[in-house]
Design a protein around this nucleic acid. Structure first.
Lengths: 128, 128
DNA sequence: GACTTAATTGCAACTTAGTTGCATTTGCAT
DNA sequence: ATGCAAATGCAACTAAGTTGCAATTAAGTC
């Protein structure tokens, strides 16, 4: 996927900040918070939040609140759920859960919370 | 359901603040934030947060972050999903979605985001 | 390529949900 | 009733996210 593809047809400028940000989101393959981003690229938080907000308006990224009080942003790729681990706070994309229906409602996002595979095994090792 | 039932067997005191809080949660039938609570009962926010945190430890309530940056708390009643409307920020309990499974993971909570019935109808009225 | 202008940026000050330290109060067991 | 740990209210704090503003930059026009 190309950065230019994401931006073209949208009514926003392709600045260097936006290019860096979108490249990072594409590379990450999982939603990122400002905390995650600021270690990788030098960018003021105001710029970050204004840009992800604009990306969201343009349906380039979507976002959700996690359990750690932070908001996570990721490139919008077809409908898929997110799993948030309540033990280690990790976030994973879940491709297998899709097209959920609820009469009269429009479902745009599904968030699952619980204990992830790693933390589950750590607490209940299969060979003990 | 009785307040005393919720507290008994747990290692916490039944103070008047806790009684009021649990009564409110039981009456509300939907998750509440501190904002919701503070209009109904006089209670310092430190007391609120310390108590809901204790209730959560004792599995009396559970909680989740909504889209409005606030955390919502409700009496824990069997597994059910929550629907958060991205338009009007309302929160509803969804009893119909239950026992979701994901190999290797433990799912403790399901949050659906989208457009609720009311907002859906407002934008796409059936008779027009 | 230089010119123009609106959009974008960084900075610093601000907002607000939630947390923490501490002195006072309260529930509850003896 | 007494003693004491747990709970409360207050005020000060923390940190994610927002906003106003002056300086900078992308991108269209000549």
């Amino acid at each position: 996927m190309q950065i230019e593809k994401l931006i073209e047809e949208k009514k926003i400028k392709l600045t260097s900040a936006r290019k860096e940000l979108l490249e990072l989101f594409l590379k990450a393959q999982r939603p990122l918070s400002y905390e995650d981003v600021k270690d990788k690229i030098k960018m003021d938080k105001a710029t970050f939040y204004r840009n992800v907000s604009k990306f969201e308006e343009e349906s380039i990224v979507n976002s959700f609140e996690s359990n750690d009080k932070k908001r996570y942003y990721g490139i919008y790729v077809s409908a898929h759920a997110h799993f948030i681990c309540q033990v280690c706070s990790s976030i994973e994309c879940v491709k297998s859960i899709t097209n959920m229906q609820l009469e009269g409602y429009k479902i745009q996002d599904v968030i699952l919370k619980g204990v992830c595979k790693q933390c589950n095994q750590r607490n209940n090792p299969p060979s003990s």
